[in-house]
Design a protein around this nucleic acid. Structure first.
Length: 264
DNA sequence: ACCCCTGTTCGGCG
DNA sequence: CCGCCGAACAGGGG
């Protein structure tokens, strides 16, 4: 599921455990989600510590524990986190369980495209440090978008929207939503976009990010009825504006849906 | 059985 | 060297 708003919602799922100690922890070190991670250090350091706070940025999350401990979770395609009761027994795809006295904090990922990282130091981990502005921030402005499009001028705009160095937290459905709202045809090369279209792209990206965070990100309630997302995976999806049948093709390696009448 | 998938990385190739 | 693109990763669902 996870694009920025869904990631924000997932992040909050562990909130019931804020302020409580980790009394035990289970994981399988060989699982792919722990690639590159020192799982022994993770286990030895985290047990006995308290979950203090968490953050989401783009598709990444960072959980901060007492004793200078940091846990980073990326959800990939199928990762998710949730809370279970204290007597929870992990199933096959429950790769990490942080046991607290009153509950279990669980990370699940059937396909294991996600990733769990660990860092033990006073400072934030290097892999969390980033200069990429969040889409809803003031730093994500026309100048930033224009420069990013110029750096990827030969790529289809759909593919550019999926690059996390520029459009942090945008994934496949959000990219289609943004292009539909900005009325831009997904296969067009970034260099072909006019000033007016670049401005529309910026506006649409901010709008979709903000509105998604206010609905999905807050309590997983429904996105506005007239958004493209409700149509894009239907066999005969239609444009929410005027019911024109949507078109579909693979662009930037991903299935893409668009309205041939609205988007030029 | 076969095809699809809201993500990322890597190697080939132009 | 740069950058685009398809394959690979791995499993579940239609």
């Amino acid at each position: 599921m996870p694009e920025l708003a869904e990631v924000e919602w997932y992040r909050k799922q562990w909130n019931p455990g804020l302020g409580d100690h980790i009394v035990d922890l289970s994981l399988h070190a060989r699982n792919r989600v722990f690639r590159g991670t020192n799982t022994r250090a993770l286990k030895e350091n985290l047990i006995g510590e308290k979950l203090l706070r968490s953050r989401a940025r783009g598709k990444q999350t960072l959980f901060n524990f007492s004793g200078d401990n940091w846990l980073g979770i990326h959800f990939g395609m199928t990762g998710k986190i949730r809370v279970e009761s204290a007597n929870f027994r992990p199933d096959k795809h429950d790769h990490l369980v942080l046991q607290q006295r009153e509950r279990a904090l669980v990370f699940t990922d059937s396909r294991q495209f996600g990733r769990v990282r660990f860092h033990h130091a006073a400072d934030e981990p290097d892999w969390w440090k980033s200069d990429v502005p969040e889409i809803i921030s003031r730093e994500f402005d026309q100048k930033f978008v224009d420069q990013f499009l110029d750096r990827h001028r030969k790529a289809p705009i759909k593919a550019v929207l999926l690059l996390q160095n520029g459009f942090s937290g945008i994934g496949n459905w959000m990219a289609d939503e943004v292009l539909w709202r900005a009325k831009i045809l997904p296969p067009r090369r970034a260099e072909k976009l006019r000033h007016r279209e670049r401005a529309a792209l910026l506006r649409a990206a901010k709008f979709v990010a903000k509105k998604s965070l206010e609905t999905l990100g807050r309590d997983y309630s429904d996105l506005p009825r007239l958004w493209l997302i409700h149509q894009r995976w239907k066999r005969s999806g239609i444009c929410p504006r005027h019911r024109t049948p949507l078109r579909r093709a693979t662009i930037g390696g991903r299935t893409t849906a668009w309205c041939p009448r609205c988007q030029r």
